[in-house]
Design a binder for these strands. Structure first.
Length: 509
RNA sequence: CGGGGCGUAGCUCAGCUUGGCUAGAGCGCCUGCUUGGGGAGCAGGAAGUCGUCGGUUCAAAUCCGGCCGCCCCGACCA
């Protein structure tokens, strides 16, 4: 049967949203579950998440944090303690009201044993961790408390998309308590920096660090900081957040210590998190019309070896040759770990196998047949280049150069993503230009909206009502007030009122 | 929660308007042969209580009603 020109249909330019779903499916990352809004993360997708966990966990430990675990269930009364927090999360909480099932009249199971106080399935853990911290600290000498937990959380979303927004998702949430405001602010910034380093260094995803506007701030936080990345459809994706919570939660949960002078003081707290959404971010940053493209530092497999065996009499020799190749590659190290090798001996046609791994995004693919073996070489293709572009490489040189090659691919992916972001980030100084920038070309009613827009660097007066109205009319919000960039004052692109600094406007996920 | 659409084989769907043989196709799956540096060809095969409950009828995938579920567009969101 004739195959389409690309492994994924539709392509990014034809229908970006549908393309995304097809990539997730083709790479076998995840699928929808019997439970509405929840996903099943399949082994290949989970392996990517494990890579994220491995690296970040190491970074958290290096910055002095310890892991712990807090309950999935949170008493409703805990959530009520912080007013802004309630407003932010109440409408998307799953609530547990019963603790038992019993047979109903028609044989079906019905809830019984109503709880005196309903429990919510954690949408985030500030309140329950705050209540625990209150017991743990008495003296300023007990601070700082630097804890992280890897967990699942539930936010009852109406519309979901695999990895990007699901009712249940996996994440880590760091929760720290400090004796002084300065220390807590420093922690908030430090962890934002960790996220930025991870996003850029491992995911090969350029990010902008900045502060959220009042309208976009985490419910209950004093300040929310974030890393924002541009996806290939030029929409922004918030890839990580770090919150300076001030004393809001300390007051709500009574996290108090005696200071050196013997006076009672509320602690200063922070929280910070990234989620399985990062997998979606990685897809939308690097994947192409043939499927997933993995940055080597997070790829579950770096190299896949596909033996090409046509005649049975070649089988033994090629099997031995590829096994030996796999062993030699595994002895090489990349990024401080052994090179991860997949030897694909499945009983499948060669073409099917090759496309299988292309769609899964493995950085380097080698085919080894009798001809290669005879020349003591391998036939190599890299995922960041066209799939037809294959070259014969001497085996020894290939093995010796694998780490450098993987690093080159890693760097190339970052450069490509950075170039895209740069190309579609522009200064906008008039309302007309602003509207033009964010208005999609007209298409027929059932057609998907063409890719357009990007990041607009424009002045903003800071009025939340203005931001809300822009969101209403154009679907555009302030993604962040970036740390970088010049500080020349100007006039708000919408109202003309004075503005201290340009902010980043964009459509977002 | 508002507006629209859809539930038929593992997947994508046709059939329904105008009720009637044993409910179909493509892909996938299994077997065999032919192929063989790219997602193959031929032949054969397995696989569906037509979402569910009820109604109309001699007869329901098809008509009517309730329920359940899913998708898309809004509102909300990491």
């Amino acid at each position: 049967m004739a195959q389409p020109a690309t492994a994924i249909t539709p392509t990014r330019s034809e229908n970006y949203a549908e393309w995304y779903q097809q990539v997730v499916r083709a790479a076998d990352l995840a699928e929808n579950s019997p439970v509405r809004g929840c996903m099943v993360i399949k082994p290949w997708g989970y392996a990517i998440w494990e890579g994220v966990q491995r690296v970040l966990d190491g970074m958290f430990k290096d910055t002095g944090h310890k892991n712990a675990y807090f309950p999935l269930f949170i008493p409703v009364s805990f959530l009520e303690k912080e007013a802004a927090h309630v407003d932010g999360f109440a409408k998307e909480c799953a609530v547990v009201t019963h603790h038992r099932l019993q047979a109903g009249p028609d044989g079906k199971l019905v809830p019984a044993g109503e709880l005196e106080e309903p429990l919510v399935v954690r949408p985030t853990s500030e309140t329950i961790i705050g209540a625990t911290y209150a017991k743990w600290v008495q003296s300023y000498r007990d601070l700082p408390l630097l804890i992280n937990q890897w967990a699942n959380v539930v936010r009852w979303e109406m519309r979901t998309r695999l990895f990007l927004r699901t009712a249940e998702f996996l994440w880590q949430e760091g929760h720290t308590a400090h004796a002084t405001k300065e220390e807590a602010v420093e922690e908030t910034m430090k962890m934002l920096g960790v996220y930025a380093a991870f996003a850029e260094g491992w995911m090969a995803m350029p990010v902008i660090q900045g502060r959220k506007t009042d309208g976009e701030r985490f419910p209950g936080a004093v300040d929310t900081y974030c890393i924002e990345a541009m996806m290939q459809d030029r929409k922004a994706l918030q890839a990580g957040t770090s919150h300076f919570l001030g004393q809001n939660f300390a007051k709500a949960s009574e996290i108090q210590v005696l200071d050196a002078a013997g006076a009672r003081q509320f602690a200063w707290t922070t929280s910070w998190g990234v989620s399985t959404r990062l997998v979606g971010a990685m897809i939308m940053t690097h994947a192409d019309d043939d499927g997933l493209v993995l940055p080597p530092r997070l790829a579950p497999a770096h190299v896949v070896i596909i033996p090409v065996i046509h005649k049975p009499e070649d089988a033994d020799a090629i099997t031995k040759y590829t096994q030996e190749l796999a062993r030699a590659l595994k002895q090489q190290s990349f990024d401080g770990r052994p090179v991860q090798v997949e030897l694909d001996t499945r009983d499948m046609r060669g073409g099917d196998k090759a496309w299988n791994w292309i769609k899964k995004g493995v950085p380097v693919r080698v085919e080894v047949g009798p001809r290669d073996m005879a020349q003591d070489s391998v036939f190599m293709a890299r995922r960041d280049r066209a799939h037809k572009e294959k070259v014969a490489v001497k085996r020894e040189a290939f093995v010796a150069g694998i780490a450098a090659l993987l690093q080159e691919i890693q760097d190339g992916l970052f450069a490509r993503a950075a170039a895209l972001a740069k190309e579609h980030t522009r200064r906008v100084d008039s309302k007309e230009e602003f509207e033009r920038f964010f208005t999609a070309p007209k298409v027929a009613e059932n057609e998907p909206t063409p890719i357009h827009g990007g990041f607009a660097l424009a002045h903003f007066c800071g009025d939340p009502a203005v931001e809300a109205s822009v969101k209403e009319t154009l679907g555009v919000t302030v993604r962040c007030i970036p740390f970088d960039g010049d500080n020349e004052p100007g006039k708000c692109v919408i109202t003309g009122l004075p503005s201290k600094k340009r902010v980043i406007w964009a459509k977002s996920y």
